[in-house]
Design a protein around this nucleic acid. Structure first.
Lengths: 187, 187
DNA sequence: GAATGAATCGGAGGAACCTCCGCTTGCTGT
DNA sequence: ACAGCAAGCGGAGGTTCCTCCGATTCATTC
């Protein structure tokens, strides 16, 4: 299960080139870039792309990992600036925005959230940790329930994001986030 | 906007044959049957299939409409047999089960829920009405909030179903439904 | 610095998607 | 009956997806 021997030099080169091309291509053309086009632009065969990133989601995930890290990192600032309950709500907004902006992240996210324990689950762990921090702070302060699993909140949040991405109705999204918050407050 | 003139005889024949083949094929092979295979088996060209059902979702939706009607019809029985709050929860279970069983309904559902007012939104109206009935009964009894839009509940429920379909973790699904119920109770 | 084995590459190929438009067929009025 | 004409049909064709495996290239050993 441990990461096997380091990649061969040419393999790493290819991987990095693919990734940087993918980042550009995704932001330039949106979610439905052709993978073949990415491979071509990176100067590698399509087979190589598929070996490094077995699914479209794996590629998108890897491409956006940096931004996703930033999203998770923001938790500390939020908690420093506002009480946990408000921090959580603010972070939810960021989360939904992020998913909305990164068009095409939607499906990747779905796969990501669904992943039980894949090698691709690093992002998922980070997200779970972020939610756990927010929930934990709220539980300590007594303003959020202590008996809700971070994982459940994350899945719920991703459900809302998916629905939001489809409908583009910001008001509804806010209402749904409000409902989720209601569910998380102690009775 | 009204339904234009009735379909020509041959068109209706084709439509019906496509639908019946699709029902069989979907239950036999699952969500990812090839549309070309369905068209072939129905003895029509692929173009005909696409004219009648512009997207894969439209076809799946039409194929499962009967079962979806049955799901909505069950609301009355549930309300007759138990207090609104429990009826709603029971119906949510049915909803999730239904989505889980009908593999491949997932994407169709997503498109369905997302549809603002397409000609294909009949199913969506039925679902909204079902939720509205349950919520209304609860509001009248004072055990459910009166200030939540049925539409929001439906979107939330579909989000949970999507997540559930991916993860196949029934316990988590139940917890999420529990959270949603918590959000729907008056404070 | 050549040989050798293993990791990696590349792209041909088969399947499915969806569109587009010339051809066919059912309907309507005379 | 039959002419005219929408409405409807069908499938070729351009794209993309993803797999598979022979050819290539790297790393290591002598």
């Amino acid at each position: 299960m441990a990461s096997a021997r380091p990649l061969r030099a040419d393999a790493r080169r290819n991987r990095e080139r693919l990734l940087s091309v993918a980042v550009q291509a995704l932001s330039r053309e949106g979610a439905d870039v052709s993978l073949e086009a990415i491979a071509r632009e990176a100067g590698v065969g399509i087979g190589t792309l598929y070996r490094h990133f077995p699914t479209r989601e794996a590629l998108v995930d890897a491409a956006y990992q940096g931004e996703l890290d930033r999203l998770c990192d923001r938790v500390d600032d939020l908690l420093a600036a506002a009480p946990p309950e408000q921090a959580l709500r603010a972070w939810m907004n960021h989360f939904v925005d992020y998913m909305g902006t990164k068009r095409g992240m939607g499906d990747a996210l779905r796969a990501l959230i669904a992943s039980g324990g894949d090698p691709f689950a690093r992002s998922r762990d980070r997200l779970t940790a972020a939610v756990a921090a927010l929930l934990g702070a709220g539980a300590a302060a007594g303003t959020l329930r202590a008996d809700v699993a971070p994982d459940d909140v994350l899945v719920g949040l991703s459900g809302i994001s998916l629905a939001a991405a489809d409908r583009r109705d910001r008001a509804q999204t806010d209402r749904l986030l409000g409902l989720l918050m209601d569910a998380l407050r102690p009775r």
